[in-house]
Design a protein around this nucleic acid. Structure first.
Lengths: 141, 141
DNA sequence: CGGCATCCCCCAGGATACTG
DNA sequence: CAGTATCCTGGGGGATGCCG
């Protein structure tokens, strides 16, 4: 027993391969709830309800479920206190913190390009709503 | 007509608010297909089929649909050539490229923590599969 | 308070097929 | 080759209720 590293095929680290482990992990994390939770956790340690409040709009179920997934992957650490009104809190692990750095980037990106994107949408929608599918004779009846 | 910037409430740029524009944009982009497409586009210009090949496992429908969304948000630019076997290619816009930088970070993160995560999963699963819910008398029948 | 289970609905998303 | 439309199923995700 040499505590040997798993022999891993390089393709397994390739996100573009549909069946790679990398893709599975990436897919598991690349969803809004996971990323938003990672984001609000940041440096702080939060209780279940606090996370719920911080991530506005998330349902009780999705919060539990997503937190479980993150815990399973070792991205958040869960601490249970044996108190009578139960107290459980969550904080990012080192891996979680590392991911959070990139999530931060996405949030910053969102703010940075928000106006631009909104404008792009308006242009696109204007372009594609009417004026599309000109039947035969244009605007004329 | 002063080409005035839209008067935008600061909350609108706050990803944590469920009804903010920021949240909507973030949510739209925080899904695996969008991120994977952004990722493979990178610096290159690719045709529809090439993207399809590069993003292994994506269905024809999801590719079209996601590309449309990205085009609408102004993250990818779509060029149509009037050739007889139709040729359409896609490349990232500046905004798309900026997002791609963070996506790159996520991919790197995935590779970096892949083994760690896999190990964490095994630990978690071992912990929660059996040994959980000890009926009454333990292993004894 | 936090977790889990259950019910249920709706839509993401796959498969297939037809146009230009 | 690229796009659109249709059909159909799985599961994402909300609401509710019961435990520890």
């Amino acid at each position: 027993m040499v505590t040997k590293q798993v022999r891993r095929a390089p393709e397994d680290k390739d996100v573009t391969r549909a069946d790679s482990l990398a893709r599975e992990i990436f897919s598991g994390v690349a969803n809004k709830w996971a990323l938003l939770i990672i984001n609000v956790l940041g440096e702080q340690t939060l209780r279940f309800t606090e996370v719920r409040t911080a991530v506005d709009g998330i349902s009780h179920k999705m919060l539990t479920q997503t937190l479980r997934g993150l815990e399973r992957d070792g991205l958040v650490h869960r601490t249970v206190y044996a108190e009578v009104p139960p107290r459980v809190d969550y904080r990012l692990t080192e891996a979680g913190g590392a991911l959070r750095d990139t999530v931060n980037g996405m949030c910053a990106w969102t703010r940075r390009y928000l106006d631009e994107i909104e404008a792009a949408r308006r242009r696109f929608d204007a372009q594609h709503n009417d004026a599309a599918h000109p039947p035969h004779t244009g605007t004329k009846d």
